[in-house]
């Protein structure tokens, strides 16, 4: 029973995350903030530039030719 509760809890949180993430992706960055947004994403701590997001990092890895 505990295992089912665990699966259910994770499923609920995953669905919530996907829904919020989808809505956030659909919401455009306000025009006046675009420059500030691009500057803020200019983090040089790791190889993944412009975002900490996994999806963008994978796209960038595919585009990068070693």
């Amino acid at each position: 029973m505990e295992f089912l509760y665990g699966v259910l809890a994770v499923t609920i949180i995953v669905v919530f995350y996907i829904a919020v993430s989808y809505q956030n992706d659909k919401t455009e960055v306000p025009e006046g903030c675009q420059e500030a947004y691009n500057e803020a994403q200019n983090c040089s701590a790791c190889g993944s530039k412009n975002s900490c997001g996994i999806r963008k990092a994978i796209i960038e890895m595919k585009e990068t030719k070693l």
Partner: peptide, 17 residues
């Protein structure tokens, strides 16, 4: 609920959301 052991996974998702 006896599922405290999933806290790491749950917290990662909750924080991201």
């Amino acid at each position: 609920l006896g599922i405290g052991y999933i806290n790491t996974i749950a917290f990662i998702l909750v924080i991201a959301a």
